[in-house]
Write a protein that binds this DNA or RNA. Structure first.
Lengths: 135, 135
DNA sequence: TGTGGGGTCTCCCACTATGGGAAGGTCAAG
DNA sequence: CTTGACCTTCCCATAGTGGGAGACCCCACA
């Protein structure tokens, strides 16, 4: 099948399919006219990549997971190690974002939000209350 | 003061100070020799930017906040609107990352993580259990 | 036979935000 | 006058995705 059908079958855009090929994640065959030809196995690889990306694995980790996936004799311990490290990274980033949200929400909670110019949010960004960070 | 002192005084790297100038967030004076000269007000602007960036405001929103900050007659309602929209965006992203972490952790919890090749994590990425997504 | 339209090819550029590094000018202290 | 710290501009890189241009390829339809 051609790239369009592979895209529809995998849920990966044509652009990204070409990109993944360019960085060596897959190597589809070529037809006489230069078109890429995708076998069912290629589409499976694309789906694997998409699922890994849906979990926000960086492409370099996708590459490692893909290699392990295609290695019949791999030890599941290695996969698990990658996965748990990524879980930790995700949780850390989520916590960091949640902390920012909480801190900004706290600032906003002190802001009247009316037509007047007084604004504790801007004061906070300015650093006015650096001496009273807790409140 | 020169850029180095402004950097130390604001916590913003020289590189980024020049970048912020290039995109029009501040406009320091120039000395005869071509060096940038920063007044205390410029450093205050840089600190404001840094605090906004610490809360992950995109630079385009920093620009709007900066304009409001420097506008004596602004309505705090507009600031509050920007801030709360950003809080919502942060919380949404945090929730999304937390969901990914939970889902990957769930996969990993079924993985022995020993020397054997069986690996539910890779199976999940492959999409093997698309018919039993709940478990 | 010609034409239109849809698919595909390769390139280049854009985005966000940050940093590295090169090649060169400036200035103060020794 | 040299040395070293500081400053300048300019180019490149990162990660992942998309947009678009200009050029083929192929098939159907008139």
């Amino acid at each position: 099948m051609n790239i369009g059908e592979a895209a529809r079958g995998s849920g990966v855009s044509e652009k990204m399919i070409r990109h993944y090929e360019a960085i060596g994640l897959l190597a589809p065959a070529r037809q006489a006219n230069g078109y890429r030809r995708y076998a069912a196995a290629d589409v499976a690889v694309l789906r694997f990549i998409r699922h890994a990306r849906d979990l926000a694995f960086p492409l370099e980790e996708v590459r490692r997971l893909l290699a392990l996936w295609q290695d019949r004799g791999r030890a599941s311990a290695e996969v698990r190690g990658i996965a748990l490290a990524h879980v930790a990274a995700l949780e850390e980033k989520a916590a960091s974002l949640a902390a920012m949200a909480a801190s900004l929400r706290h600032l906003a909670s002190h802001c009247h939000g009316d037509g007047r110019p007084e604004c504790p949010i801007l004061d906070g960004l300015e650093g006015k209350h650096d001496d009273h960070p807790a409140c």
